[in-house]
């Protein structure tokens, strides 16, 4: 359960304030599949970072499962990110000079997962993201953009999180691999009732979701159920 009350986010540059998010109010129930869309620079990624407990709002409160994020310590937040949240970054953020498998296993390292089981779980997650096995031992910086994107998705899935936040997860993928990824998200949502929030520019991607939130200049201008 996600609740945002009057969330604002401002950046300060030499005492000049730019308000990127302006008093957002909305909530997302467990098990929802939500797409967020809007023009470039409208504040989508900024909002995602806040929802993913990676960043804090300048004002307003963000409640995750009923508890205000501001009440948690740094380490508690790390734990929440590790166990509850799977985050796909718009710019992937893979560890360079590190193999695909090691990248995907990283959240398992911090979850203190048994070492012997990690690789199998990572391989499953990679398969669900549509990356073929020949790439698993490559270094992450030897991959194409689309391949990196799928590694980033696999890393978000690997801990079996109940909340998946994906920032343009299909942005670098062709239609076919994009469909594999969206199918995976759909399965997680339909079969396992995981909450999925994804950012996208493409309407046909947004239509996979049950609900669509439209943002412009840091304000929600539309929030509706899709036809499906």
């Amino acid at each position: 359960m996600i609740e945002c009350n009057n969330i604002t986010k401002s950046y300060f540059n030499e005492n000049e304030e730019t308000q990127v998010l302006k008093k957002l109010n909305f909530s997302i129930r467990d098990g929802e599949f939500v797409a967020i869309t809007g023009p470039s620079g409208s504040g989508k990624s900024t909002l995602m970072h806040i929802l993913g407990a990676l960043d804090t709002p300048t004002s307003g409160e963000y409640k995750l499962d009923g508890r205000n994020i501001a009440d948690f310590t740094d380490d508690e937040l790390a734990d929440i990110r590790n166990k509850k949240i799977g985050f796909v970054f718009q710019s992937f953020n893979l560890l360079a000079r590190t193999s695909v498998l090691k990248n995907v296993m990283l959240p398992l390292v911090y979850a203190e997962f048994p070492r012997s089981k990690r690789e199998q779980i990572a391989r499953d997650a990679l398969a669900r993201s549509g990356l073929s096995e020949e790439h698993y031992n490559k270094m992450s910086n030897q991959l194409s953009g689309g391949q990196m994107q799928r590694v980033a998705i696999a890393r978000a899935l690997v801990n079996n999180p109940s909340l998946i936040l994906a920032d343009e997860p299909t942005g670098n993928l062709d239609t076919k691999t994009g469909e594999i990824v969206l199918k995976t998200f759909e399965d997680l949502n339909r079969k396992h009732h995981h909450t999925i929030i994804l950012i996208t520019h493409e309407m046909d991607v947004a239509e996979h979701a049950d609900r669509l939130i439209l943002i412009r200049d840091g304000v929600i201008i539309n929030d509706y159920k899709t036809k499906k």
Binding site: D74, R81, N93, L106, P107, A111
Partner: peptide, 16 residues
Amino acid sequence: TREIGLRKAVGAKRKD
């Protein structure tokens, strides 16, 4: 620094 950010994003605690 970016690596540290990523590690924290996927669950590294301060002590880690």
